[in-house]
Design a binder for these strands. Structure first.
Lengths: 219, 219
DNA sequence: AGTCTTTTGTCAATATTTTGACAAAAATTT
DNA sequence: AAATTTTTGTCAAAATATTGACAAAAGACT
């Protein structure tokens, strides 16, 4: 992290993808990779890769390229994958349970430490290695465990209120699967990542609607 | 869809968000909205909203603003929410099941028509209103039902192969939750929407890493 | 009916992002 | 060891995206 200027969001959004592709290369047995080769694999320009990486420092060697394992580790450290941030999951519906059981948090520098649900019927049931706890336990749990991240899988209507409550309990990172955009004004100093699967599906459908136009040689 | 120039991806990605906010306004009882008011709600500039909407035509009225219901319907039609595209879900693991049960496809112009899993143990089990079918049934199913979209919730290792198979069966839209970027070269003429939840979580963690720097008045 | 206010659609200016170009550095070949 | 090739890091140019400004149109008010 040598350069001090503000890193643009476009760059940050590309880092996880680099990290992923470098992991693939590593498991395929690659030791080194040039920006050109990586660019071909990833369908981007070599220039972009070099520019992006140089936001954080010169990880390559001229005439050689980048050492796959080293570069991956560097990017991992920039992203904080080497950390172990505690995350608490709120909402043990289908999506919540899927994210509890299916998702490999460790791989991304996180660790699930508890699951909560407001429905008294859900509380007490087991999800993965966790027993779902009632929301009444949330305060004392957070004071003990001090999780940094909350994963919100609750109905839209509850999002704003639960968000505020979690912020008061020291949560600073919100991974929000609610159909509601949590806003920064709502929760002072918080970092929010809104995941809207519906938006994603609609973007896909737009692509299908306009496929012919895009493919056809316009003009 | 009056303007004929190619719509930029940035604009398309914003459309679902407009659609969502207009839906909220509608359920809050709003009849009309000005670009300024909407911009304040959405935390964007009014200029951007007007510019975006004008890619598709003039939906507003000077001195009045936009009629919420009409604008929502226009955007919905641009996104194809008024359609009913058939989608088949491949992979009945936790995420697959969550997407089968939890997700309201109709809301986004789609309709789930079947679930498949390569694991013989999974086949036959019930997920939501569907019985999971074995992959051996996929070909005859697609020939009968003619789904347009495949939702991929399978392991990375299977993604490329299953993708090709589905493309041959007439699937043109891929909603890909696999840890593998399906590429357009792989599948000719297909529209792919890669969803990488891991990337999203890493971006959140990056934000937490660099929170202080971002907040502090730099320089 | 005329004046004032609101607000769009659009153009131009600004800002950001991406790409292309190339010198300098390191590796490889002869 | 010199020449050649590769490939980075960086700068400048080109392409995109966002924002600000404003005339023209429509509504609201007096």
């Amino acid at each position: 992290m040598s350069k001090s200027e503000k890193i643009s969001n476009s760059v940050i959004r590309r880092l996880p993808r680099y990290y992923r592709f470098l992991g693939e290369l590593l498991s395929e047995g690659f030791t080194k990779i040039s920006s050109r080769e990586l660019a071909d694999r990833m369908n981007v320009t070599a220039s972009q890769i070099r520019q992006d990486l140089n936001c954080f420092g010169g990880f390559g060697q001229q005439g050689y390229g980048y050492t796959v394992a080293d570069l991956r580790e560097e990017i991992g450290s920039i992203l904080g994958v080497d950390k172990c941030r505690k995350a608490v999951l709120i909402g043990a519906g289908n999506l919540g349970r899927a994210l509890a059981v299916h998702f490999d948090y460790k791989k991304y520098g996180c660790e699930l430490c508890g699951i909560f649900d407001s429905d008294p019927a859900a509380a007490g049931t087991t999800t993965g290695r966790f027993v779902v706890q009632p929301m009444t336990e949330l305060d004392s749990f957070c004071e003990k465990q001090r999780p940094e991240i909350a994963i919100l899988c609750i109905p839209k209507s509850a999002a704003a209120e639960v968000g505020k409550r979690l912020a008061k309990l020291g949560i600073t990172g919100f991974w929000n699967f609610t159909h509601y955009d949590i806003r920064l004004e709502d929760i002072e100093g918080a970092v929010v990542e809104n995941v809207h699967l519906g938006d994603s599906l609609m973007a896909l459908c737009y692509g299908l609607n306009n496929k012919s136009e895009a493919d056809a040689p316009t003009e």
